[in-house]
Write a protein that binds this DNA or RNA. Structure first.
Length: 223
DNA sequence: ATATCGATTATCT
DNA sequence: GATAATCGATATG
């Protein structure tokens, strides 16, 4: 299943469930460069994934699934390729994609996008005025920001299947291939804060945070 | 430029 | 009652 999105040079092919049915590190690495699509009322929003974090099912105290299978976290234990959306700090929603086979926890937090299509609508949803090129970073550079730009909420999107183009929110491949990937510790956590599980596209302007954070390892291939 | 802090609520102890 | 996978505003160098 592919879609031709206005404003994009190449057709976008939705990812299949098997893509997500792997460990979170590998899914995280391979999600870099993929395209998040919101299709609502005939309009498209699209953004390229440039920053993600892996949250492991076991031995990861920073993962919500560390608390076990609860009402909140049950989606993480469900089938792969679904959205786990949570509300944080009384203000923001964050989007994760579930990984691993059903019954096994693991997910990837989408932290930043490079906006591709529907920038005006994103700006409207974010309440930002696009006056210059620097303002584009205010759209989707950060997990809370991209959720707001794409209208992602818990009631609307939690547990949604991201492998179906009929589902309004999905993830696809437009042929883009990540050139250089960098691995760093995760952001904004206190537990297991030392693990290098944050993946970013090197030199991408839309990675979250002020300018450049310290980076460790350069990944040539694999996860 | 970086640092600190308040907002605001679901979830868990 | 405390904490949190964040953001934006404000303060300070």
């Amino acid at each position: 299943m592919t879609a031709q999105l206005s404003g994009l040079p190449s057709p976008v092919r939705v990812l299949v469930r098997a893509f997500f049915a792997r460990n979170p590190r590998r899914v995280a690495r391979e999600l870099l460069g993929k395209v998040l699509v919101r299709q609502s009322s005939g309009r498209f929003l699209a953004g390229r994934i440039v920053e993600v974090e892996a949250y492991l099912g076991k031995n990861d105290l920073a993962a919500h699934s560390a608390a076990g299978n609860t009402a909140r976290t049950s989606v993480i234990f469900g089938p792969p390729g679904h959205a786990y959306v949570y509300f944080i700090y009384g203000n923001h929603y964050c989007l994760n994609v579930t990984c691993e086979r059903e019954g096994k926890a693991g997910c990837v937090l989408i932290r930043a996008l490079e906006p591709l299509t529907g920038l005006e609508e994103m700006a409207l949803a974010r309440g930002v005025v696009l006056a210059g090129p620097r303002d584009l970073r205010k759209l989707t550079s950060g997990p809370g920001r991209l959720a707001q730009a794409f209208g992602i909420t818990r009631t609307r999107d939690n547990a949604a299947d991201l492998t179906s183009v009929k589902n309004s929110l999905w993830i696809g491949d437009d042929g883009f291939r990540a050139r250089s990937v960098i691995l760093t510790p995760r952001i904004g956590i206190t537990k297991a804060a030392d693990l290098p599980l944050r993946y970013i596209l090197e030199n991408n302007l839309f990675v979250s945070g002020p300018k450049a954070r310290p980076t460790n390892l350069r990944l040539s291939s694999g996860a």
